[in-house]
Amino acid sequence: MLHKFLCLSLAFCCLAIAGCGSRTASSSQKDYERIVVVSDLHYPTKAVKEDKRQAILDNKEKARQDINSWKDVDLTVFTGDMVAQYGSMDQMKEAKNFIDGFSGDKAYIAGNHELFYKEELKNGKPVMADPALRAAHEENYQKVFGPLHSTKEMGQYFLIFLSPEDTKGKYPVEMSKEELDWLTKTLKENQSKPTIIFYHAPLSDTLIPYNDKVGSPRNFAQPAGAIDLLLLTNPQVKLWVSGHTHTPPTEPSFNNEVNYYHGKILDVYNPTWDGKQVWTNSLYLYKDKIVIKTWDHKKGEWMDNMTRTITL
């Protein structure tokens, strides 16, 4: 009887080990890399009314739990405006504490709210800071989140992370000359690699203006002319991944032919986490294509009509 029990136990263990092995093999056979994009987090929230604040905070926590449950995520990218309003050290640390609760590897870029505004509000809105304060905010950002621009290789793909570093520019989403020089050099040295650029603001003319603010140059990556020249001479750039405009999937501009810059580079718009509900885009990087899918965290399902595919 004891012999029979030992045999059965051994058989059960073998099956369990085999089962674990098959799951591990399945995971190792994944033929894509997955990037989840979190944009315009504005943590904890810009909302003032307490009942609205709590609902927004609950949505953010639920969305973070959803993302942490996705075991195939290779990288989560935070595309700016992580802070509630401005780049004080306190707001930087508060946002970072929440972000630290996301599992796995993370990458960050700054938005206008990290760098561009005074540490005060006027009529509930932030006010443009002078160059000295903007430089101080850049120092805060680097202490909490790291470099303002950087790169990462993911399989065959080359990822570039950029922030609006110009402390003297009139636009809140403007690159500095030094950053543009670095970007020029970086693109030239990596022309053979399919490239994805992450920047807080979208490219010019990749959005149907649905209000006066959205159509303003302040809402598009600057300096537009210099960026245009760089992109036209570097066809390896396949995607420009942006936030800033808070454009949701409920807007026709979210998934539209106009999103293709000069008909070639897809600008992937990412909605804010600081609204009535949360959506996130996932980028699936395959050897021969990139698939962009949009998840509705309220309904807990993919928005199949928003899926886009870029063939390499």
Results as ranks from 00 to 15, higher is better:
16 A>S: 14
134 R>S: 07
252 P>L: 10
100 D>C: 06
55 A>Q: 14
76 T>D: 04
170 K>Y: 02
152 K>T: 09
6 L>V: 08
172 P>V: 07
131 P>F: 10
244 H>Y: 04
220 F>P: 00
293 K>Q: 14
133 L>I: 09
284 Y>E: 14
293 K>S: 13
136 A>P: 12
129 A>C: 07
108 Y>E: 03
213 K>T: 09
275 G>V: 06
206 T>Q: 04
237 V>G: 06
110 A>D: 02
105 D>G: 02
255 N>M: 04
228 D>R: 06
37 V>K: 00
107 A>V: 00
94 E>P: 01
83 V>P: 12
84 A>I: 04
42 H>S: 03
138 E>N: 09
15 L>N: 05
166 D>F: 10
302 W>M: 10
102 F>K: 13
129 A>W: 10
223 P>R: 00
22 S>G: 00
80 G>E: 04
259 N>M: 06
273 W>Q: 07
53 R>P: 08
214 V>T: 10
152 K>S: 11
49 K>P: 01
151 T>K: 11
88 S>Q: 08
99 I>H: 01
112 N>Y: 02
90 D>C: 06
268 V>E: 00
107 A>H: 05
114 E>F: 01
123 N>S: 11
122 K>E: 10
301 E>L: 11
249 P>L: 04
293 K>H: 03
275 G>E: 14
293 K>T: 13
175 M>I: 07
287 K>W: 06
250 T>D: 12
302 W>I: 08
47 A>M: 06
25 A>C: 08
254 F>P: 00
226 A>V: 08
172 P>M: 09
108 Y>M: 04
191 Q>E: 13
312 L>R: 10
36 V>G: 03
303 M>F: 03
19 G>E: 12
246 H>M: 04
205 D>I: 02
151 T>F: 12
187 L>H: 08
45 T>P: 10
295 W>I: 06
162 L>Q: 06
42 H>Q: 12
271 P>A: 15
170 K>P: 00
161 F>L: 10
291 V>N: 01
201 A>Q: 11
258 V>C: 04
141 Y>F: 14
121 L>I: 06
63 A>P: 08
204 S>G: 02
260 Y>S: 03
23 R>P: 00
177 K>G: 04
70 W>C: 02
185 K>M: 09
282 S>G: 12
129 A>M: 09
80 G>H: 01
94 E>R: 15
310 I>S: 00
92 M>Q: 13
41 L>V: 05
208 I>Y: 05
198 F>D: 05
179 E>W: 00
307 T>C: 07
181 D>R: 02
111 G>K: 02
67 I>L: 13
212 D>R: 15
242 S>F: 01
36 V>I: 15
80 G>A: 09
30 K>N: 08
266 L>W: 09
51 D>N: 12
1 M>Y: 07
139 E>Q: 14
158 F>K: 12
95 A>C: 02
44 P>S: 05
188 K>Q: 15
98 F>G: 07
236 Q>E: 11
57 L>I: 15
125 K>M: 11
121 L>S: 02
262 H>R: 11
70 W>I: 14
230 L>F: 04
308 R>Q: 13
105 D>T: 11
110 A>N: 05
70 W>T: 02
82 M>Q: 07
